[in-house]
């Protein structure tokens, strides 16, 4: 296990940011800390980096006790949401900074900087100032800068949060490919569940200063530990008093299976290939159901239709 966090507590005044958090983050993996804003995930990342200190508890990185080490002794790479580019230095100088601090020989620095700029596709911008780069380019520069010192762990705090949707998606794919190439233990913070599901090997869900669940994307999606994880990872609705995903509900127009819940369709909304129904059940529950357009057409569903709802086999329910 690469990063061990044990019983960490952190308060800001009256606000409890982390409440007795313990978690192990595996070596060589890409791990996401996922949760709503203000849930404590960034604080946890900053405590791992040494940029904030925990009130109590301990941190160890690759077996080294790091709780009281200052950030510059932890051999980490940190990427900030707002890039934290050194504005008065060129792109190449930014990337070289950590190596210069470590007093590496000049030719080695030059070689390493060129290699990294290649890796992040910024070679042609080496002599520009950060102000002359786009947001996505700046973040790639920040990543190269963090990787230059060959960190034991790479920490990214909402790395794509300040970028627009398209660049965000590109960088996300690119980060995944980069990780497959470099294999450095990577932890990134995000509040976007799609981002976490798509990129991460493992996800730690954090809410209100507590770890809700740890697992692979599939585990989390298929077997959420509680209501919170279930509803944070995707759309949910209630059927028969249980949380269920709208696409895990089977719709029929005839009373087929026993135990089906009967109701009438109050609204039909078509979004592209999918059809979303709002069903008012006879016991007064409002259920959202998603089905394919083909299915909806086959069943001939319209507003006012009587329908019978069942959870599909293997549906995720909490």
């Amino acid at each position: 296990m690469s990063i061990e966090v044990k019983n960490v507590n952190k308060r800001f005044g009256d606000f409890v940011a982390l409440d007795d958090v313990s978690v192990s983050l595996p070596t060589g993996q890409l791990t996401a800390l996922l949760g709503p804003s203000g849930g404590g995930k960034s604080t946890l990342l900053r405590i791992i980096a040494g940029l904030d200190s925990a009130d109590s508890g301990s941190i160890s990185i690759e077996g080294t006790e790091a709780t009281h080490l200052p950030p510059q002794k932890r051999n980490i790479g940190f990427v900030f949401q707002h890039y934290a580019a050194f504005k008065h230095m060129s792109v190449a100088k930014n990337v070289a900074f950590g190596l210069e601090i470590r007093k590496k020989p000049k030719p080695e620095i030059e070689r390493k900087v060129n290699e990294l700029l290649d890796l992040v596709h910024l070679s042609q911008f080496a002599n520009r100032l950060p102000a002359q780069l786009s947001g996505g380019q700046r973040q790639r520069m920040a990543l190269a800068r963090a990787l230059a010192v060959e960190p034991t762990v790479l920490l990214l705090d909402e790395p794509f949060g300040a970028l627009d949707a398209k660049v965000r998606k590109e960088l996300r794919d690119w980060l995944r490919r980069l990780h497959d190439e470099v294999h450095v233990t990577t932890v990134f913070v995000t509040h976007d569940q799609e981002e976490a599901l798509e990129v991460a090997d493992e996800i730690v869900v954090i809410n209100q200063g507590r770890v809700e669940q740890v697992g692979t994307p599939d585990q989390l999606y298929d077997a959420p530990a509680n209501d919170f994880v279930m509803s944070f990872l995707g759309d949910v609705t209630t059927l028969g008093g249980e949380l269920i995903r709208p696409h895990d509900i089977e719709v029929d127009v005839t009373p087929g299976e026993p135990g089906a819940i009967e109701g009438s369709v109050s609204r039909v909304l078509r979004i592209g290939f999918e059809v979303r129904l709002t069903v008012l059940t006879d016991v007064g529950e409002v259920v959202t159901v998603e089905l394919t357009r083909t299915n909806a057409r086959r069943l001939g569903i319209a507003e006012g239709s009587r329908v019978y709802l069942n959870a599909v086999l293997g549906a995720t329910r909490v």
Binding site: A49, G50, L51, P70, P71, Q72, K73, N75, I76, G77, F78, F80, H82, Y83, A84, A85, F86, K87, H88, F97, G98, I101, R102, A142, R145, A146, A148, V149, L155
Partner: peptide, 27 residues
């Protein structure tokens, strides 16, 4: 200017003194 740049420098291994001279003062 905030202290993002200073934190970045620290995370890259710069000591307080190095951060001050290389990052804060130019800013």
């Amino acid at each position: 200017i905030g202290d993002d740049q200073e934190q970045a420098a620290r995370s890259l291994g710069a000591s307080g003194w190095q951060t001050f001279w290389r990052i804060t003062v130019p800013g």
